[in-house]
């Protein structure tokens, strides 16, 4: 089996990227696929609490994020630099995501057989 890493780098609601990435990560988890999820760039905004997608006609993603553990998706990471550039820290996040430095992200990619970007 391949080690799959998904990179979520889009803001949560401007495009459908975040929702369709989560759709895929849940299916991958259901199939027992080894999958890691990395949030970076504006993708870190997907992790913020108190989201109200309904107001802008979108499904609220933070609820889906909270359900990931039930799909055996436990390897969740966030780019530390992307957080600090946006004046955020891990306390602002709605789920537990391990902050990674650039060198650790490099290592994550090196250990992955497959990268998919949303």
């Amino acid at each position: 089996m391949k080690q799959l890493t998904l990179i979520n780098s889009s803001s949560p609601y401007q495009t459908g990227n975040a929702q369709e990435s989560l759709d895929f990560v849940m299916v991958a988890g259901t199939f027992g696929q080894a999958v890691s999820l990395l949030f970076m760039g504006d993708g870190v905004f997907q992790l913020l609490g108190n989201q109200q997608g309904k107001i802008i006609g979108r499904k609220t993603l933070s609820k889906t994020l909270a359900a990931l553990e039930f799909y055996d998706v436990d390897d969740i990471y966030v780019c530390a630099q992307s957080l600090s550039q946006r004046y955020l820290n891990t306390n602002d996040l709605v789920i537990t995501a391990k902050p990674l430095q650039a060198s650790e992200i490099q290592q994550l990619f090196a250990n992955s057989d497959q990268l998919i970007r949303f």
């Binding site: 391949k2 759709d23 199939f31």
Partner: peptide, 11 residues
């Protein structure tokens, strides 16, 4: 197809 097909295809 469902997304599971993508997992299979990748593997």
């Amino acid at each position: 197809v469902g997304l599971g097909e993508l997992v299979e295809l990748s593997n």
